[in-house]
């Protein structure tokens, strides 16, 4: 059993199937990555450097954006990834324009 699982070839993160220790090396199947942080089981590790503002990709789709520069081998979680969805606490909200077109009141499926 591999220590990490990569779901899609487009992904820039992998899921740790076991706790990962700094100083060890994991193999994604494509790249070898030196682990930088202690990463709990089930959490994500960066396979490549992800610059601030770039998409974090899992399942082949964006799961959010890097809020700071993330180095390869780093723990990827809420401290360095920002979600773009449902953030009423932020002054300016970016929602996919395709999703924005409808008025809430005509969305009643009932």
């Amino acid at each position: 059993m591999n220590a990490v699982l990569v779901i899609s070839a487009h992904d820039n993160v992998a899921t740790a199937l076991e706790p990962l220790e700094p100083g060890t090396t994991v193999h994604s199947g494509v790249v070898a990555v030196a682990v930088r942080d202690a990463i709990p089981r089930g959490h994500k590790i960066a396979l490549y450097r992800i610059p601030a503002g770039a998409a974090v990709i899992k399942y082949g789709s964006a799961i959010g954006k890097a809020s700071v520069d993330i180095e390869a081998g780093a723990h990827v979680h809420t401290h360095n990834v920002a979600s773009g969805r449902g953030r009423g606490d932020l002054a300016t909200q970016t929602v996919d324009p395709a999703v924005r077109t409808a008025e809430p009141q005509d969305a009643e499926a009932r």
Partner: peptide, 15 residues
């Protein structure tokens, strides 16, 4: 969910 390793709603939804 977050303790379990899920970071954002997008990640949770895709799964």
């Amino acid at each position: 969910n977050i303790r379990g390793g899920l970071t954002t709603i997008e990640e949770k939804s895709l799964g």
